[in-house]
């Protein structure tokens, strides 16, 4: 067995993520965190996370930005806002998770082939292009980009949807998607 150091030296820490988050109105509030753990306690998905929400905040503040931006945690957040309404320090944790998701997507640090970030990206592309989302096509694209073999495991669900007449493969779109794209592109510029 190879012996490796598991604890970082202080000199190796990098607080740039904290600095970047602090520039955002929602991100700056993590300085208030008292590490009580209420967020992790109420989070319905924390049992699957590599770092609980409380720990994630501690990691950001102490300089473990790389671990944070490559974590599964941020992608397991389902945006249920339980932490946000329960936090005694009124930290908008869900919004911070969103900010971290945006950074991880932009910097491509998210866990590879993990379906949640791929879903976000494909959903974004479809809505940007057509103005609307076609559920069945989105699922097919997701499977093609993550694990094509899993397509078969979705067949019974597809059959159920067909039996209850809820499955449609017709592409949904708005009348002039190009006008919306123009607006969204211009927004992207001013948002920078």
């Amino acid at each position: 067995m190879e012996i490796k150091r598991t604890i970082a030296y202080e000199g190796e820490l990098d607080k740039s993520l904290l600095t970047r988050l602090s520039a955002l109105p929602e991100g700056n509030l993590i300085r208030r965190c008292i590490q009580c753990g209420t967020c992790s306690g109420v989070c319905p998905l924390s049992i699957y996370m590599d770092s609980s929400p409380r720990k994630l905040i501690a990691l950001i503040r102490e300089g473990f930005g790389k671990e944070v931006l490559s974590s599964f945690t941020i992608w397991l957040c389902s945006s249920c806002y339980s932490c946000t309404v329960s936090c005694p320090q009124e930290i908008p944790i869900t919004e911070i998770m969103y900010a971290l998701k945006r950074m991880a997507l932009e910097e491509k640090t998210y866990p590879r082939r993990f379906p949640v970030p791929v879903l976000a990206r494909e959903f974004y592309r479809m809505v940007f292009k057509e103005g609307r989302n076609t559920e069945a096509l989105l699922v097919l694209r997701l499977l093609a980009k993550t694990n094509i073999l899993k397509t078969f495991s979705y067949l019974p669900m597809g059959l159920n949807l067909m039996l209850t007449r809820r499955l449609s493969l017709k592409k949904e779109k708005i009348s002039r998607p190009s006008q919306l794209r123009k607006f969204l592109e211009a927004i992207k510029e001013v948002g920078k």
């Binding site: 998701k101 945006r102 970030p117 990206r121 959903f123 974004y124 809505v127 708005i174 927004i187």
Partner: peptide, 25 residues
């Protein structure tokens, strides 16, 4: 008439201002 997608929780994870713009339209 001609409403567009709200962006659900996905758009917010990619572009914050654009997700507001979708609903604004």
């Amino acid at each position: 008439p001609d409403w567009n997608c709200c962006g659900a929780t996905a758009y917010m994870a990619v572009d914050a201002l654009a997700s507001k713009a979708l609903s604004f339209r």
